[in-house]
């Protein structure tokens, strides 16, 4: 549950981190609609995301930009039911995405993760209504082994924990030594987030803070 929830960071930073996902409802949409038609609807969702200026897309079942080799390959791999994603770094683009999705009426469920108040405004401007909300109550338990906050901000952008702390530190180190730019570092870290929800652009900004 909730691979796009529990992202950490300041409100300023989270303003540039909006994740859309779409999927068919198991036992409902996937029973009523032929699988290839479901695939076409999910593909259209990602195409709309690209038209509205998202910074990356991904398919949780087939892969991300790195594992599949490019945007076209992700679209082409989406031929049946899956959870698909589009990541935005700008509120105005997110509003345009919501408006376009409303118009397209794909019938698939859409979930948007981001700052609650900001998304409320986006919904209002695009004529959508929040149906169900999932709130993050933070991290509890033995937190003594957790890394420094900026590393956590990057690590939590892959909800499955596949962007390892060791690799984040390794990339930050390479940036400090001038062997990689922050943008290259962000894209490098995105490779192991198989769902494609990792916001490489925001990661690049956090890496710049770590390296400075």
């Amino acid at each position: 549950m909730s691979h796009t929830l529990h992202r950490r960071g300041s409100v300023e930073s989270l303003k540039k981190d909006i994740v859309f996902l779409a999927l068919p409802a198991h036992r409902y949409n996937d029973q009523d609609i032929p699988m290839e038609e479901v695939g076409a609807k999910l593909r259209r969702f990602m195409e709309i995301g690209l038209e509205q200026g998202c910074i990356c897309i991904g398919n949780a079942s087939t892969g991300n930009l790195h594992t599949l080799g490019g945007v076209q390959q992700i679209l082409d791999s989406t031929t049946s039911g899956a959870t698909v994603h589009c990541v935005f770094d700008d509120q105005e683009k997110a509003i345009a995405m919501m408006q376009a999705l409303k118009e397209a009426d794909l019938g698939m469920s859409v979930v948007v993760s981001g700052l609650f108040d900001m998304l409320g405004e986006c919904c209002q401007k695009s004529g959508l209504h929040m149906h169900t909300v999932e709130y993050s109550l933070g991290i509890w338990g033995n937190t003594s082994g957790l890394p420094a906050e900026p590393i956590m901000e990057i690590n939590t952008m892959c909800g499955h924990g596949m962007v390892s702390v060791g690799r984040i530190q390794d990339v930050a180190d390479k940036i400090k030594k001038g062997r990689m730019t922050c943008e290259e570092g962000g894209k490098e870290l995105a490779k192991t987030c198989t769902c494609g929800i990792f916001n490489w652009k925001r990661a690049a900004e956090i890496l710049a803070e770590i390296a400075s």
């Binding site: 409100v11 409802a25 794909l106 019938g107 993760s113 981001g114 998304l119």
Partner: peptide, 13 residues
Amino acid sequence: WYRPNAKNNVGLG
């Protein structure tokens, strides 16, 4: 307490 960022089903399904 809860975080300022949340996950929202926007009712398009």
